[in-house]
Design a protein around this nucleic acid. Sequence first.
DNA 1: GACTTCGTATTATATTACGATACAGACAAC
DNA 2: GTTGTCTGTATCGTAATATAATACGAAGTC
Lengths: 258, 258
Amino acid sequence: MSKEKQDTLFVGSLEKGMRILSAFDERHSALGLTEIAALTRLDKSAVQRLTNTLHKIGYLNKDPESRRYRPSLRCLELGNAYLWSDPLVQLAMPKLIELGRKLGERVNVARLDGHEIVYIIRIPTQLTSFGAMIAGRRLPALTTSSGRAMIACLDESERKEAVETWPIVALTPKTTLDRTKIAAAIEDAAACGYGLTQNENILNEIGIAAPILAADGRPMATVQCSVSSLRWSIDRVRTEIAPHIIEVANSIHLAKRG
Amino acid sequence: MSKEKQDTLFVGSLEKGMRILSAFDERHSALGLTEIAALTRLDKSAVQRLTNTLHKIGYLNKDPESRRYRPSLRCLELGNAYLWSDPLVQLAMPKLIELGRKLGERVNVARLDGHEIVYIIRIPTQLTSFGAMIAGRRLPALTTSSGRAMIACLDESERKEAVETWPIVALTPKTTLDRTKIAAAIEDAAACGYGLTQNENILNEIGIAAPILAADGRPMATVQCSVSSLRWSIDRVRTEIAPHIIEVANSIHLAKRG
DNA sequence: GACTTCGTATTATATTACGATACAGACAAC
DNA sequence: GTTGTCTGTATCGTAATATAATACGAAGTC
């Protein structure tokens, strides 16, 4: 009754419950009732009922001491459901493991979801930040090698729209905020067949990504590799890594589903 | 009103919604309305409303062709919430990456949850089945090296109860069903400080696991390694791998939380 | 072309979730 | 010790919400 008239096929309680579950993230690992209420903009009673429910069915653990909630092990299974359902994951996984071993560097597969890229496979070979190791991590597409590699495969108008309107977040002091430069980087990616970034999301990190194309030619995902610029130069990345990720990306073909 | 009287703090719609989400798993990657209804024992109308809701808020994708639902990328984030909240994960991750590189074999961290172990970190180094690569995977504790390593740290009565009552699932033709033999394996684990299995869950697989102990001495998790028996003998595993996983397990100490 | 199966849409109904409020326990300030 | 303010917990009357029956329409099978 608040804003738009809601569908009779829309179950509000479920939406609220999911809002609560998704309140737990990188920055919020343990939350109390009032904190959840503030984060989700739900009133205390609702939060009380919904957390209680999630606790009873095993998706939230409750610390008896602090009375704060944490996501439970069962939450991991929800993520796995995606991994099992995406044929690309199963197809690419063995190739990525092999690639990781060959290169000795972190390799990933990322999909595009809206304006963001989402890592769906991550093979950690070198030590790195924890956030760079977990699947499901999202980053703004424009400032990632994967995003650029995929945008470069779109047609003129889509490319233009992406460059001009998609959001940019300055994750490091060196993140490129100038959209003209981003446009140039994407042109470069289109020319050489892979996207490249440096210092965009993590300092001293070089990213390189080659697109995986669907049967219709549209970009579906990327094979990506992240290395430290303390050990690698852009030139060496271009000559020594690019051919390998392109080869793996080209070897991945999928029947359907984009 | 059906079976037990329900708490007024229990939101049934949320529970049903989660039942639907959890219906998607390893064996069910894309489901239609009627299939979901059958799997969750909900009636068609409920399933219609709840899937519609999950779709609208972005947790289920709907194939416009087949009208079947699939878990979306957003589901991955729910799993990550757990990873961020568990201090053990962040603490152990770098050590595991290092260990994986040193051994050149698959290494994992597993927690005990009820009668099952759950892998929370997986570092794939060698090619293996897809199921052996995803975090959140559950296995019955009694027939895993991790489970045995942890049970071996419990006191006499708990150990006895576990061996006698916890469930066993024959995942391979060679899975040990004889509880006497399992008891012996656990005694062995208690004696040498690590659990060991062969052919229990995957054929030609040897598993070895060392317990990570909490400050109070109770087992919290394990550092585990899986190798192929085609390339490794039990003896070599005992002499070449055991010391390393024990060392890493011992190096992991946590302030609180079991 | 008849039949089955599945997904969609629409109702009237009362069960279900709601949210205000009161209570209790922990902690800090003073 | 007392007061005040945080928590989280419990209760309860109300009506809005989710319900489940049913009808429809589309796609695929025999």
